[in-house]
Simulated scan of single mutants.
Amino acid sequence: MDDMKLLRDFGAALEHEPPATLARQRNRLTGARPRRRRVGLLVTGLAAVATAAAVAVPTLVLRGSVAPPTGARPAKVVTGALNVLLVGTDSEVGSKRFRKGARTDTILLVHLPADRKEITAVNIPRDSIVQIPRCGSVPARKSMINSAFDQGGLTCTVKTIETLTDVRIDHMVEVDFLAFKEVVNALGGVQVTMKQPVNDPKSKLRLPAGTSILNGEQALGYMRLRNYGDGSDMQRIKRQQVLLRAMMAKAKKMLTDPGKVSAFLGVVGKSIKADEDFDMETMVDLATSLNDSRLPTFLTVPWVPSPDDPHRVVWKQPDAEQLFARFR
């Protein structure tokens, strides 16, 4: 079955008792136009959703949902802007290496302004020493920010970041290592360039100097690589930003191939967890608003070495406060 026939059949199927949220979205997009026009809009919608996936908000079919924090939260300012928290965890559910007590290996706060033009993605260093609030039965404590997930999951991570920044997080997305590998493989691999060869047994990564196409396993090793350059978490974050930008560029190239878009979205949807308010209708609305967006500008929370441990960092003030004020 060719790709366009598959999409036409899917469009026809939507004429018969689609899910309520999808039916509302379809009617809003298509109105009473002829069937061929509806199919064209469906293809456009799939492409738009792929663009949204590249900006770290992929939630077509969720693997699971995450409860929002309880108690006091920053005020929700109705401006049309959105703040989305994306975390990558070191859990590998379903693999032989799965373990309990996972931590966040990557924490990314994505700010989408009301006009959706200049998107900003801020990396929060996992080695940040911060005050973590009480989460359920776990008392408040001072520790590395990635331990918030270990003790209270994504809900506690959101609560911690909201407490530290006074930024209201509108949506949250969780991706584990196994899911990350599946997404990279669904993209057909991702290209990176190394200034020097890599042979790191800990991250299970071996690469020559120059340009390489990484599969999912290799991309995960690249994301986690520490024994390279100065070995710092800050340099690791810079490499992650390079990899994420390459993934976004690869995803955009898929938009002319509906079959690849459909396959990619199927993998992405089954690979993540998000808050329950990030449903299909919300996602399609957000996706269509991102059509003309540029790739995100990547930043890192301003930091200085911790006075108690040179291998850890603390946020530099007032610089960090000024950065997050923009997000509010």
Rank of each mutant, 00 (worst) to 15 (best):
183 V>A: 08
117 K>M: 09
282 T>A: 15
111 H>E: 08
267 V>Y: 04
123 N>K: 10
97 R>I: 06
277 D>R: 15
139 P>L: 13
237 I>L: 04
297 T>G: 05
30 T>K: 01
317 Q>S: 02
110 V>Q: 07
82 L>A: 08
105 D>S: 12
77 V>M: 07
322 Q>F: 09
167 V>E: 07
75 A>N: 07
60 L>P: 11
311 H>G: 09
223 M>S: 13
18 P>A: 06
86 L>F: 14
92 E>W: 05
41 L>I: 11
292 D>I: 04
326 R>F: 05
70 T>M: 10
53 A>R: 04
175 V>D: 05
242 V>I: 06
211 T>D: 00
23 A>V: 02
275 D>Y: 14
188 G>V: 12
189 G>R: 00
262 S>W: 11
6 L>A: 09
251 A>I: 04
85 L>M: 06
10 F>H: 10
141 R>C: 04
214 L>D: 01
258 P>L: 01
86 L>K: 03
200 D>Y: 01
256 T>D: 15
268 V>Q: 14
43 V>P: 02
298 F>W: 01
180 F>S: 00
198 V>F: 13
258 P>S: 06
54 A>G: 15
145 I>A: 11
324 F>S: 02
49 V>H: 03
122 V>R: 04
9 D>K: 14
204 K>I: 02
187 L>H: 02
34 P>N: 12
92 E>Q: 11
123 N>M: 11
161 I>Q: 03
323 L>A: 07
167 V>A: 01
323 L>C: 12
257 D>I: 09
298 F>Y: 08
320 A>H: 00
195 K>G: 09
102 A>F: 14
194 M>N: 06
13 A>H: 11
302 P>F: 09
266 G>F: 01
245 R>P: 06
238 K>F: 03
210 G>K: 00
146 N>C: 07
111 H>K: 04
146 N>F: 10
166 D>P: 08
130 V>A: 15
121 A>Y: 01
241 Q>D: 09
90 D>T: 00
291 N>Q: 13
33 R>K: 15
69 P>K: 04
